[in-house]
Design a protein around this nucleic acid. Structure first.
Length: 568
RNA sequence: UGCCGGGUGGUGUAAUGGUAACACUACUGAUUUUGGUUCAGUCAUUCAUGGUUCGAGUCCAUGCCCGGUAGCCA
């Protein structure tokens, strides 16, 4: 799968997170000694996976790998009104893309019959009853955080009556919301989850897998622990907001007398400069603030994939952020540094000019074209080299020229020399402007003794700066989508009254430009990733066609010059 | 106001009663035909107070602050 550091060489990671520490203790306890560790990733198929899910995926599958165990993929499909096959498919695709393969594929809906039988068992034991209270009444009877609840008037129905009613509920005799099956626990429990929680609700809805077979559906609490139990999950790892549900999880397993997994909770991921809740992501899509779930600005797995993130970079990120019980926000910079780290090692370099400024090498022969040899990846000799055409008329980046340059500007300015990457050293002699006073061309001369690759002292003489370029007649056009952070603020949810996170969207999170790129890119295929030298990492978007190249900026390179400039 | 869980640099994560470590960020400096990469270095007495101890980020007590929780959602 992947070379993670945890137990990577059969050895142990020097630092264990709290989940690993608990697991190691458990694995030596009498209950589990000699047993195989089994976890599961249990998404509800009601949306696309995002980077927060990636944390859970890496944790669950990673743990299984570390401890020589197994990890299942289980769809928690207990609420047919929100779930769709489309989501089931995308989730499987995303998990695989991240580099993981589940041992068993399950659906909570596969356990509906067993869950029903267990409910009957609880009714017979006098531990569950059919309640006729409406949802509003149920809420009133539950009490509040500080006031204990009171018993439902239906709490003491006979076992026989409960059995009949529950059977009729299943048979479809009652409309939505008419009755529920509830566990008989304690209406005065300080933990509200224990105040006779609902186990089944009536829902005449079509389920994406069971069709119209059922009209009663189990609640999360009634389905989750038992599903874990059926699959003999040893460790059921979930997020912190389920912490208060653990006593209920335990209660059901105990009352049923079935295999009892251990639930462990960790803090879910929050990322700065973006939003993570499904509701908000859905809103971005439906209100067209982005082009879809896979828009490169979205923190979804599909969005990150389209943006150019690699599975390795996301796994690396998950490894970096750790796992704890403290509710924290990870800086987007950590995600960005992860993808830079991986792409720096594997992405081939290429030259692309985003905002072209024509230059003419006046002493270079009109019809001459030389092929210059360029290294594809200085970090990886096996990536080889390629040939780039050099000619009299070139295009450079507008930002690489300044008429009145400050002292530390190491690029092109009148009278100064600069190295053209993999080309020659040139000097700018003259600036050509149009009637409006805009710079339209630079006239330069080159030093023929400085051809790249030659080993002579004159050829290797140093100049302060090196800039990228393309040959005007050879370059090809490409649409480049310059993506930036989705939101302007570190915490987009932090808004004044009356505003929403939408007011914090970064208006500059996408700029589209037409760039001139070197001819070698002609054959680039969707998904290919490159480093545009001195600029950033880019990938080929699926919108690319035979006659139109489209690139997405994954992330810019670190830019200490821009940083220097912004100081003043 | 009940119950549950948390507070370690700018941000995260470690340290399991014994030298507060690692990563990201930032800032120095070196290297560099990418102002990239790489390398070297700088940046904290652990929420507060008291206690136990030869020794406390870690154990105890009290306080303060933060988060979760009252769906027939998951």
């Amino acid at each position: 799968m992947h070379g993670d550091s945890l137990h990577g060489d059969g050895g142990k990671k020097d630092r264990l997170n709290f989940v690993e520490q608990e697991i190691e203790k458990d694995l030596q306890s009498p209950k589990l000694v000699g047993k195989t560790f089994i976890s599961r990733f249990p998404p509800e198929p009601n949306g696309y996976l995002h980077i927060g899910h990636a944390k859970s995926i890496c944790l669950n599958f990673g743990l299984a790998k570390s401890y020589g165990g197994r990890c299942n993929l289980r769809f928690d499909d207990t609420n047919p009104s929100k779930e769709e096959q489309e989501y089931v498919d995308s989730i499987q695709n995303d998990v695989r893309w991240l580099g993981f393969e589940w041992d068993e594929l399950h659906y909570a809906s596969d356990y509906f019959e067993q869950l029903y039988d267990w409910a009957v068992q609880l009714i017979k034991a006098g531990k569950a009853y059919v309640c006729d209270l409406t949802s509003e009444q149920t809420r009133e009877y539950r009490g509040t955080l500080t006031v204990p609840g009171k018993n439902s008037p239906f709490r003491d129905r006979s076992v026989e009556e409960n059995l009949t009613l529950f059977e009729e509920m299943r048979a479809g005799k009652y409309p939505n919301g008419a009755r529920t099956l509830r566990a008989k626990i304690d209406m005065a429990a300080p933990n509200v989850n224990l105040r006779d929680p609902v186990m089944y609700r009536i829902l005449h809805a079509h389920h994406h897998r069971t069709g119209d077979k059922w009209c009663i559906y189990p609640m999360y609490d009634w389905a989750h622990g038992q599903s874990d139990s059926i699959e003999t999950i040893t460790h059921s790892i979930c997020t912190l907001e389920f912490e208060d549900h653990r006593p209920l999880y335990d209660w059901f397993c105990n009352e049923l007398g079935i295999y009892h997994p251990r639930q462990i909770e960790f803090a879910r991921l929050n990322l700065s400069y973006t939003v993570m809740s499904k509701r908000k992501l859905l809103q971005l899509v439906t209100e067209k603030h982005v082009s879809g779930w896979d828009d490169p600005r979205m923190p979804t797995i599909s969005g990150l994939r389209r943006r150019g993130y690699t599975p390795e970079s996301i796994r690396l990120f998950c490894e970096k952020i750790g796992v704890a019980r403290f509710y924290s926000t990870i800086d987007m910079g950590v995600l960005e540094s992860s993808v830079r780290e991986h792409l720096n090692a594997v992405a081939n370099r290429v030259m692309a000019v985003m905002n072209p400024l024509p230059i003419t090498i006046t002493n270079y022969p009109e019809d001459q074209v030389e092929l210059m040899e360029a290294v594809n990846n200085p970090e990886d000799a096996s990536a080889g080299t390629r040939q780039i055409p050099f000619s009299r008329n070139l295009l450079i980046e507008r930002d690489d020229f300044m008429e009145n340059a400050p002292k530390k500007f190491f690029r092109l300015t009148v009278g100064a020399e600069v190295r053209l990457r993999y080309g020659y050293i040139i000097r700018c002699d003259e600036v050509v402007k149009n009637a409006a006073g805009e710079i339209v061309e630079l006239r330069c001369t080159y030093d023929p003794e400085t051809r790249s690759g030659a080993e002579t002292a004159t050829a290797t003489r140093k100049v302060k700066g090196t800039i990228h370029w393309v040959s005007a007649q050879h370059a090809i056009d490409a649409e480049v989508r310059l993506y930036d952070r989705l939101c302007m603020n570190e915490n987009p949810e932090d808004v004044p009254a009356g505003k929403t996170f939408l007011d914090n969207l970064n208006p500059d999170n996408l700029k589209v430009v037409t760039a001139k790129v070197e001819p070698a890119l002609k054959t680039a295929k969707a998904g290919d990733r490159f480093q545009f030298e001195r600029t950033g990492y880019f990938c080929v978007d699926p919108d690319t066609t035979a006659d139109k190249l489209v690139f997405n900026r994954t992330v810019s390179l670190k830019d200490s010059w821009a940083k220097e400039m912004s100081k003043t």
